[in-house]
Design a protein around this nucleic acid. Structure first.
Lengths: 149, 149
DNA sequence: TCATATTACTTAGGTAACTTAATAATTAAC
DNA sequence: GTTAATTATTAAGTTACCTAAGTAATATGA
């Protein structure tokens, strides 16, 4: 077991806190919030995987947030005309969500924006370290998800 | 320049998003919020560096949040008896913040909790990868802080 | 088959951690 | 000695969540 007052632990903690403040995630893109784009991207993913309109509950599962959260985000997206709700004819309790053409455009624009940012990061770190970093992030995520159980 | 549709970029983005949901940062410790502990830890740091009572504005600078944010957090901490405000006699606009004994205890407890968590992480990753990860986090943070300027 | 349980979503209300804009009090600068 | 700048606070707003309670539809099983 590593020493409880380990310098590495302190260094890690500090690095975590700094990293949290980078704000890689905080900017609006053409007036839409990060949380809205996450939902848009999730819907698009579903549409790509198969010709598939995603249920609200599936969005909630994929993003690991509660259904009311998704309902609210979808409300905003629908109000802005990026998304359409339709009652599932096979289960009339369920709601299927579909991107409108405007929604697809916005999603594409955001995806490009994020990809540019991360491509820039890869240039900055180099391909090898970037891969390493992604792997480490995933590994660390596993550690914490096991802690919380 | 790396390919704009690079798999690594997608992988990184996904890893970032997952990592964001780990919640390493979200739990209360004996009824106090993470943001409150960040302030407590900052005050303690100042007290350690020299025999030094930190001004509210300095807390704000160190944590990179606006002064009203700190004011509010300090209000809560003071209400809970973890912290004391005193007007700076050398500049009566300024407020100096000091930990009470209760505050010191709470801070110590939280520090131990965090150190345990991160020591556990080091055991999980190994010392070498942990150092690497901390360095990468810092490097990535630099990238993003240069982007936003 | 019909009463009960379960599921899918929504509504209502709340919280944490921030922000900006405006204001009060004090100190600094010319 | 007035004006400008600085320090902190108050007020109000935002984002991204949450829980609890409610509605409507479907599934279960006696």
């Amino acid at each position: 077991m590593a020493d409880i007052e380990s310098a590495t632990a302190q260094k890690l903690l500090k690095a975590f806190m700094q990293f949290r403040k980078t704000g890689w995630h905080d900017k609006k893109i053409s007036g839409h919030n990060p949380s809205e784009f996450k939902v848009l991207a999730t819907i698009q993913q579903g549409a790509n995987e198969k010709d598939y309109e995603m249920k609200l509950s599936e969005i909630s599962q994929r993003l690991q947030v509660t259904p009311p959260t998704v309902t609210q985000i979808i409300n905003n997206l629908e109000k802005d005309g990026l998304v359409e709700r339709t009652v599932d004819p096979e289960d009339r309790r369920a709601v299927k969500i579909k991107l409108t053409p405007t929604g697809m455009e916005a999603t594409a624009k955001a995806r490009i924006r994020f990809t540019e940012t991360f491509t820039g990061l890869i240039d900055y770190l180099g391909e090898e370290e970037s891969e390493q970093f992604a792997d480490l992030l995933t590994k660390v995520q596993h550690y914490f998800s096991e802690l919380n159980r």
